[in-house]
Amino acid sequence: MAKIIYQRILFVLLVCFGINASAAEVDTVLTHSDIMKKDIKAVVILPNNYSKKVSYPVVYLLHGFSGNYADWITKDAPVQNLADQYHCIIVCPDGAFASWYIDSPVNSYWMYDTYVSKELVSYIDAHFSTIKNRTGRAITGLSMGGHGALSMAIRHQEVYGAVGSMSGAVDLKPFAKDFAINQILGEYKDNPKSWADHSVVGMVDQLKPGVLKIIFDCGADDFFIGVNNALHEQLLKAKIAHDYTVRPGAHTWEYWSNSMNYQMLFFSRFFDKLN
């Protein structure tokens, strides 16, 4: 009798508080990069009640400098709940300690633009039930990953339909002596043009109005706030529509965990409108 009463109480709690007995499925997959000739792990988060009969949009979520593919599920971030809430697949690639998600012009070992935007996207589309075109793909990330998301989306506008950045290092030039960027681009003094061309602020002229849906933000106390404000002004001048927000906060997981809620809502509206 006590067991029956307990089950009834549990049922009432589930109904009253909207608790879903099933939850997002988190898995780690081993992918292969032909261009870099190595295996690379990624986290794949499937929404609850995932079905192969349904085609899901995918959000590629990038980690920052010194991080790895597991950051977004081991830190205090709401990504599993967001996969459930918006019925999408979230993929967290590994961008190595300091790849900057760039195809390095000086070292062929670092080819993470091609890996994420071509090899990983192809793997995910082949192994999961996805919307297999740009109307069902978005990409975002934090810090180094914010730079990577924007730069890859601009370079591959045929792959991604929406892009975001949280506290992104959107201009690499002011940080030429920091974050191991020189191992990817070489020394700034030797080729300043390459640094300019690989910075997001140097790619704005590649954007056409209305092609990419863009959202980015930065904390008011973040050391990247200056370059983000400058990118915002540059996009305004170029008449490229975008959502830009400055919120209280710094370069912290507390800030990024909150930011993800706004970015996922933005991506969900993009997916719903086109699919």
Score class of each variant (00 low, 15 high):
80 Q>S: 13
142 L>R: 13
224 F>P: 01
7 Q>T: 00
44 V>M: 05
37 K>Y: 06
262 Y>A: 12
110 W>A: 08
100 W>I: 05
175 F>H: 13
159 V>K: 04
146 G>F: 07
242 H>Y: 08
64 G>Y: 11
146 G>Y: 07
23 A>P: 12
99 S>T: 15
147 H>K: 08
36 M>N: 06
17 F>N: 14
133 N>E: 15
27 D>M: 14
194 S>R: 10
78 P>Y: 08
4 I>C: 02
167 S>D: 01
156 H>I: 10
50 Y>D: 00
45 I>S: 07
98 A>V: 09
252 T>M: 02
217 D>W: 00
181 I>A: 00
168 G>E: 09
140 T>S: 14
204 V>D: 01
103 D>Y: 02
58 V>N: 00
164 G>P: 03
185 L>C: 02
49 N>Y: 14
30 L>W: 08
33 S>V: 15
108 S>L: 13
105 P>W: 01
122 S>Q: 11
246 V>K: 05
238 A>Y: 01
237 K>M: 11
185 L>G: 05
73 I>Y: 02
15 V>C: 12
233 E>V: 01
224 F>L: 13
109 Y>T: 13
96 A>R: 14
186 G>R: 03
201 V>K: 08
137 R>F: 03
223 F>N: 10
165 S>A: 10
73 I>G: 05
49 N>K: 10
125 D>S: 15
232 H>E: 02
209 P>A: 12
166 M>R: 08
270 F>Q: 04
44 V>I: 14
11 F>R: 12
103 D>Q: 08
217 D>P: 02
203 M>A: 02
265 L>H: 01
249 G>D: 03
219 G>Y: 09
272 D>N: 12
